[in-house]
Design a protein around this nucleic acid. Structure first.
Lengths: 231, 231
DNA sequence: TCTGAATTTAATCATTTGATTAAAATATTT
DNA sequence: AAATATTTTAATCAAATGATTAAATTCAGA
């Protein structure tokens, strides 16, 4: 902390530094320099990942001088941390809200999650690979920020699932299989889309069409899976 | 090409340079220096990806001098290319063979693929994220090496799927949905495993257990999906 | 064992890259 | 308008990193 002061005493004092700020919602059409840098960082980090990203890439994408990036965000790492936190929480938020809704049934939750996530992913298709590959390099990122564990096991979803199992409406008792299947069916096409587009020679428009179909199909498939009996 | 000669005229002439060699199967317990470097490169690249990997990391992992790496493989990029090619073809091979078997039914193919891929992934769980994140940075890698497209659309699997659709045994006509579902159900838990292990506080042993269960469950679920009707 | 080829090493280079500095330009306040 | 604070720039630094060189060592065959 002393080092902090020593290192930056020559900088002007500002009420609220970017790297101290709480993450805030990105959709404010921020045209301040700081906002431009953050948007550029989001774009480049999401596309290339932390290690392959050069701070110069971000500066160029933002149309600013490289020094400005360090002026506003102190370091590549701090800037990345902000982007990662926002990306992760943005991605989890939907899920957690839906999973904890008291009013909706399990079946309805599946419909809501499928539709809202597919829409979300169509807008930001690079996000899943970004998250998964960055977590590989630093699994601690997760723990650090999000208390997903209790949100999951104390969720309304979890209780509804247990109930459905005891009622016999779901044959496979593990909620983890259920979640893996649901999220997998939703997310996997997006992480595999570069392969799909090559292998299946799918154009972007066709891919979108397929994903639109899956909004309806996944809930149907999940219901079929629920009833399926392995024995 | 002239530059090539000029740059390396001082190197001893060798019959077959590593970077010229065809990819060969990795399981030969290669204890030559060249083999050690390749094994180390595979380990480090798979774990950290191209951009985050330092050639010094590979050298250290292999227990050799950094210069040796360049002596045997010319450059980081060439070494990476070898690893990527081997990894990709190793990953596709299983699939292509099974999909083109004349003797097995569609249902049997699903069982075979689920079981063999889950076993494969339990041995090399980092491979899917490695492939997917590297393809993101360079989608051309795929095209370059593997003629998957025709292998897919002229496969026995593809014809069997079409037949099953016209026979009414499969409700959703798109073979792409079928493949996305199958591969997604198999692969997704592995790419998401760091999250699962945090969120679900799953130990490695529990994860293995879950994956063993999925060998049996996925074929059952896929059959249920086949019968499920959206209308 | 001798000789040339193959392998390995230590030292070093050149470039890239994240970060910093000090000064210039711009905006804000008095 | 003058003074002060904030933002932006160009120049530069230091460390990291991929690559190269030349010399030393080991190995294979005559």
């Amino acid at each position: 902390m002393i080092e902090f002061k020593k290192k930056f005493y020559f900088y002007p004092v500002k009420a609220e530094w970017s790297y101290m700020k709480k993450a805030k919602e990105p959709k404010e059409k921020d045209i301040t320099t700081e906002g431009k840098i953050k948007e550029a960082a989001r774009t480049v980090f999401h596309k290339k990942g932390y290690a392959a990203t050069r701070t110069r890439d971000i500066a160029e994408e933002a149309g600013i001088n490289l020094a400005l990036l360090n002026y506003y965000f102190r370091s590549k790492e701090k800037l990345f941390h902000i982007i990662m936190t926002e990306t992760l929480s943005g991605f989890m938020q939907h899920m957690v809200v839906v999973l904890n809704d008291e009013k909706t049934t399990l079946e309805k939750k599946v419909e809501l999650i499928a539709a809202s996530y597919i829409d979300l992913l169509l807008r930001a298709p690079e996000v899943p690979v970004f998250i998964l590959s960055e977590i590989r390099n630093n699994p601690a990122i997760l723990m650090e920020k999000i208390p997903v564990k209790q949100l999951m096991f104390h969720s309304v979803f979890f209780k509804q699932h247990q109930k459905a199992v005891t009622d016999g409406r779901i044959k496979e008792p593990s909620p983890l299989h259920f979640l893996m299947n649901l999220i997998g069916l939703i997310v996997f096409p997006f992480v595999a889309s570069p392969m799909l587009k090559k292998i299946g020679s799918i154009k972007d428009k066709d891919f979108n069409q397929l994903m639109q179909e899956r909004k309806k199909l996944i809930p149907v498939w999940i219901k079929a899976i629920m009833k399926a009996n392995a024995k």
